Simulated assay, not measured.
Amino acid sequence: MDYILLFFIGIIATTIGTLAGGGGLISLPAMLVLGMPVHSAIAANKVSNTISSFSSFIHLYREKKVTFKESFWIMPVSLSGGVSGGIIASKISSEDMYIVAIGLLVFAFLVSVIKKGDLSGDQPLKVSGKSVLGLYAIGIYDGLFGPGQGTLMLYLFGYLNIAYIRAVGYVRLATFSSCLGAAVTYISTGAVIWPLTIALMLGSVTGAQIGVRIASKLKPQYVKPILRLMTVALVIQIFLEKVL
């Protein structure tokens, strides 16, 4: 029964995560409720996200929605940001990490309200100070804490006037990059419970394919309300974790 539940949890979490980020809001608490040890639950998330995010990027690449030429540099920037975040995490208290997480998400929410635009831009993704610094900073945040990484990236690509469907593809590529190192680490430490992880991964790959197909048909004016809803949900979850 746990395998079936994890499969459907993977579908739901990754479909939502592909569209607006925040899939971990669903998958991680659900796995903990099912009794998985916390490190094994995180490991399952990282392994499944690595595979599912790459599968969704490849789908969009084959559909010619994104190009590797435009986005190859995302991988080293996100990976180096994640490594930097992991190093910084060892020197920052959990209390400060919660404050950073809430502060970033609230800031992103406010910017989305103040700034016009709805991810309907048509600008190419270029290597610039803003794009590199933004992706590197979010990579650090992912290495430090994690929840809301995909949502923050969608806000960044919206700020850079990238069209939504391309932004989804590039977020998935960045997620693959940041999760790959973590997945390898968890595998090497033996934290992965493979039967449960594979069940979640199969659901996540299915959810990723559903998500990119919905994203390709989603009208840009509906994106920001979904992003804002996920942002509020993330802030509430992080706040409750800090309080409880």
Rank of each mutant, 00 (worst) to 15 (best):
A44K: 05
K46F: 06
Q237H: 15
H39A: 12
V111W: 11
F176P: 00
G35R: 08
S128E: 11
A20Q: 04
L218N: 13
I58A: 15
L227V: 10
V83F: 05
S188K: 13
A174E: 02
G81T: 03
A233G: 11
I26A: 06
Y170G: 03
L227T: 13
A89D: 14
S120V: 01
F176N: 04
L110N: 12
D122H: 09
V132Q: 04
T18S: 11
G24Y: 12
N161K: 15
G10K: 06
G121C: 09
A89C: 05
A89N: 15
G121A: 06
K69P: 08
G10V: 00
F54L: 15
M230V: 15
A183W: 00
S71Y: 09
S120M: 01
G85T: 04
K69Q: 14
L34G: 06
G117S: 04
A191T: 11
L60H: 03
G23Q: 00
I238N: 04
K116C: 07
K115L: 14
G203R: 06
A13T: 00
L229Q: 02
S84E: 04
Q221W: 07
I187T: 11
I88L: 15
G134F: 10
I198D: 07
R228T: 10
A30T: 10
L202R: 05
T50H: 05
I102C: 02
L154P: 03
Y164H: 10
K219L: 08
V47Q: 01
I165P: 13
P195H: 13
S80R: 00
V66F: 03
D96R: 13
D122S: 12
H39I: 06
P124W: 05
M1D: 12
L202A: 14
I58K: 04
A43F: 00
E241M: 13
W194I: 05
A137D: 02
I238K: 04
A101E: 11
A101Q: 10
T67C: 01
T175M: 03
S204K: 15
F239H: 02
I12E: 00
Y159I: 14
D122L: 04
G148I: 00
V113Q: 14
A137K: 04
K115P: 06
F239W: 06
S178L: 06
K64I: 01
I102H: 12
G10F: 10
I238H: 06
